[in-house]
């Protein structure tokens, strides 16, 4: 059985790195319009989602909780300028769902910006918002966020899931990198980022329990740590997580001494900003996978015969 300590340590290291490099969560005020102002919002939203998981699961030590709180405060106060950057982003691209998606986890954590919310509500009354063409997995995520925000999910998640790759349970031997990310994100959305494992319909949970071991094996050997981390999250979201020992040991061994997780193979080189952009995501994923898997390991411990 995988050592809970090993799983936990991956997360503490990752959070230390994220905290030490929090200035990397930055927006570009004078960005080229071709790139778009919203391009750099995604990391901020992901940070908030994962810090929320950390608070929710209650397996963080006091230092981790403190780091996570400071990270969130930094992201909200400095990066998003107390929410004003969300409003600005929405004005630049009125139909984009990104400011709404970034805002939601902050709102759930107690941050608030009424003007931004007003813009989101107006936005979502538009038929165009619902007609906006998105890949099914992304649309599934948006419906989940609408529900969490207290808006009607349009369309309901139950309607969208069948259109996603995972929802159709296709041949497992066809999975490649892009499909694998669609699978992991479908699971994130169905479970509210691990909060509600029962959100995965039973046939899909069976499908994942059957084939996930193969995908873990594959991306471990390919040293694709970012994707492996997301697949480890999926494992922790299943009714009976395997906490795959070989995958966790390989994942932990790939982590740099300072807590950063390379996306593939080994740590890249570059300026601090380039480095941040290359590894912030796998490092966030490492924190996410660690918190969920630690929580599940403790649950298993609690249910184990004395």
């Amino acid at each position: 059985m995988t050592s809970t300590r090993l799983i936990h340590t991956v997360g503490t290291g990752a959070l230390e790195w994220l905290h030490a490099h929090r200035d990397g969560f930055r927006l570009e005020q004078d960005v080229d319009p071709e790139v778009g102002f919203l391009e750099r919002f995604k990391p901020v939203g992901e940070l908030a989602l994962i810090c929320k998981v950390l608070f929710r699961e209650g397996v963080a030590g006091s230092r981790q909780a403190q780091l996570a709180r400071q990270l969130l405060d930094h992201a909200w106060r400095d990066t998003l300028d107390g929410g004003r950057m969300l409003v600005r982003g929405q004005r630049i691209e009125p139909l984009s769902p990104i400011p709404f998606e970034v805002y939601l986890p902050f709102k759930e954590l107690g941050y608030s910006h009424p003007e931004a919310e007003e813009a989101f509500r107006l936005n979502q009354r538009l038929e165009s918002f619902h007609a906006f063409e998105l890949p099914p997995t992304r649309r599934l995520g948006l419906s989940a966020f609408q529900r969490r925000f207290g808006l009607p999910a349009r369309p309901p998640e139950s309607e969208v899931i069948g259109r996603t790759w995972l929802g159709r349970t296709p041949e497992p031997w066809t999975v490649e990198g892009h499909i694998a990310y669609d699978i992991t994100h479908a699971v994130f959305h169905l479970t509210d980022w691990g909060e509600n494992p029962d959100g995965i319909p039973a046939p899909l949970a069976d499908y994942l329990a059957t084939w996930l071991p193969v995908w873990l094996d594959d991306w471990l050997d390919l040293e694709r740590w970012d994707l492996l981390g997301e697949l480890l999250v999926v494992d922790a979201c299943l009714p009976r997580p395997t906490l795959d020992e070989r995958a966790w040991e390989g994942f932990a061994a790939a982590q740099a001494p300072d807590g950063a997780m390379p996306a593939v193979r080994t740590m890249p080189e570059g300026t601090p900003e380039e480095l941040f952009d290359l590894v912030y995501h796998p490092t966030l994923v490492a924190a996410f996978a660690s918190v969920l898997a630690t929580s599940r390991a403790l649950t298993q411990l609690a249910h184990a015969p004395a």
């Binding site: 059957t210 084939w211 071991p213 094996d217 594959d218």
Partner: peptide, 14 residues
């Protein structure tokens, strides 16, 4: 049977 099926998927992927 499920383990052999997993092995089939692994072999195809590789």
């Amino acid at each position: 049977p499920a383990d052999v099926a997993r092995g089939f998927v692994r072999a195809v992927r590789r």
